[in-house]
Amino acid sequence: MLDSLPLILSFLMAGVPPTVLATVGGIALTVVLSAVAGLALVSRHRAVRAVSRVYVEFFRGTSEVVQLFWIFFVLPALVGYQIIPLGAGILVLGLNHGAYGAEIVRGAVRAVPRAQHEGAVALSLSPWDRMRRVVLPQAVVEMLPPFTNLFIQLLKSTALLSLVVVDEVVRRGQLLVPNLGVGEKLTIYLVELVIYLVLALLITAGMRLLERRAAARVGRVPATGVAT
């Protein structure tokens, strides 16, 4: 069984770049959408809140697999144009996790004590300065741990891209399974799981670094605890 391990490893590792690309691209889009939609959710304008709320509930309410298939199969039928699978994947990962991230941003902004808003009001800071200079820097500290979890969810979701034939880790595993002996299946899947575990640990480590920095900026010791 171990004879084929090098082969399995090299074959699956070739799927890591697409997986990483989808994860990084998805995270980038998630961060942007979370910030925009999250701040829109705490806007003073009702219409802005409503638009953002529709986005959030729509993407949280429909299944990610459905969203992926919809963009992959339905959209081309409607607009006559096919997005490349990896691009479609990143789009869905970002739109879906951005909706969850928006709620994180909203919750963290609202968790900043009222007294901090009032302190900023008492100094006559404008609403925009209050948000940007006082509330957001404090809210970011609260956001980072849940965002770590969200990014790991996103990493796991990249496996779904194998269903729309993106050549990532799981897809390559599926190509390998029928071509190797019966006993090799477990090895293939274990290698896959370990690849995801390592990527998840990398995300966690990177986010811990950010957490520590953000916590130091507000003069706090970072909370300890397991976040995966």
Binding site: E118, G119, S124, D129, Q138, V218, R220
Partner: peptide, 19 residues
């Protein structure tokens, strides 16, 4: 209600510079 994300100096100059 001091701002924890700023130093003492930051707290004191934030509004004078911005407002």
């Amino acid at each position: 209600n001091l701002f924890p994300n700023m130093s003492v100096l930051g707290n004191l100059i934030e509004a004078p510079t911005r407002v």
